[in-house]
Design a protein around this nucleic acid. Sequence first.
DNA 1: TCAAGAAACTTTACGCTGTTAAGATATGGT
DNA 2: ACCATATCTTAACAGCGTAAAGTTTCTTGA
Lengths: 198, 198
Amino acid sequence: MTTKGESAAKRYLHGDLSRALLAAARHIVEAEGPSALSLRAVAREAGVSAAAPYHHFKDKAELLSALADQGWRELGGCMVKARQAVSEEGQLTALGAAYVVFARANPALYRVMFEAVREGQQEPNDRLMREALIARGATPGSPDLTFATLAAWSAVHGLADLAGMRRFDELKAELGGERAFLEAVLDHMRVFPSPRRD
Amino acid sequence: MTTKGESAAKRYLHGDLSRALLAAARHIVEAEGPSALSLRAVAREAGVSAAAPYHHFKDKAELLSALADQGWRELGGCMVKARQAVSEEGQLTALGAAYVVFARANPALYRVMFEAVREGQQEPNDRLMREALIARGATPGSPDLTFATLAAWSAVHGLADLAGMRRFDELKAELGGERAFLEAVLDHMRVFPSPRRD
DNA sequence: TCAAGAAACTTTACGCTGTTAAGATATGGT
DNA sequence: ACCATATCTTAACAGCGTAAAGTTTCTTGA
């Protein structure tokens, strides 16, 4: 049986190092940015030697990929939750807002997430967005749906990447928060129409 | 007087090392990706010692920032050129297409460019896009113009980041090239309306 | 013209990184 | 009880960014 219930302090065998490494990685990446995330720092934070992670992850990229996967899962959860609260027509906008809000709340994690996609280690799920577009009238197999999905994803990803610039701090404050700012920008994309005016 | 006209081979003083370093950096970044771009590799490629670049750039970040600056300048040139060929209403779409096409033609350079923006070392110019939006009817000082500019930039940046995914290779081929693919996606953004239908 | 100083470059060295290899220790199955 | 195996450690390697100190070349002004 595993040593599941015991205190995790300074045993030779950690017991749940995979999880601990992921947690440490996430902590470091959000606290000090992706460029400061070294495998050795992760191991240090988890209280193990520099070589220990290699018994749980093939290399650094695999750890980052696992971290990214965790992020994509959480983002999926946020989007599902956001969808529940709105009418069918408003779904896409709600999903887009949830996407950007999550990325802005976890900016460094989001960078790791997207990097993993870029390297082909992750295949983010566009099912929710496709469904929302279909609910808004797109025909399921059409190229139009493909383009619209990609347009929506481009918009939210691009906005997530841009919204962190200090340049917009003042504007966000005027609008009473980042959320309002994000929605105002999304409202200028045809794929993200405002519920009020469409 | 400077040794301007002489052969650049194996002199103790290089003569134009700044430029040579930038050229080497650009070559490496496009050939092997941003993660492979080490200062030592750049120095090696330029035929100088590892410490030589420090007489021309404060550190690695400053070299990358200079490379990014060069990229943003070139992109600006492409956009100006793209604008000349179209009517006033089509300007924004032409600018957006030029942006994405440049980013896709120099994907690794574009990543360096955007990273520099993210670090606050570059302030990319949105003058052209603002002008195009005004030409399309936006009122110069309005918040709407700000949001629309940001929406346009989000769209092209996001698309540039996404368009490289292998996932779309087949679709691009069907459309007869990446350019058509990019325009089809841009056409689904309100800020980038198709000339034909708007 | 020539010495002095500045600029451009080199060698050397430091601590950091990712990763591997070889050895130590705990666990679980028989 | 014992052994294979999984998990961890220490030690080592090359490559990285960068600083310090030494060498070579260019420039400048008396």
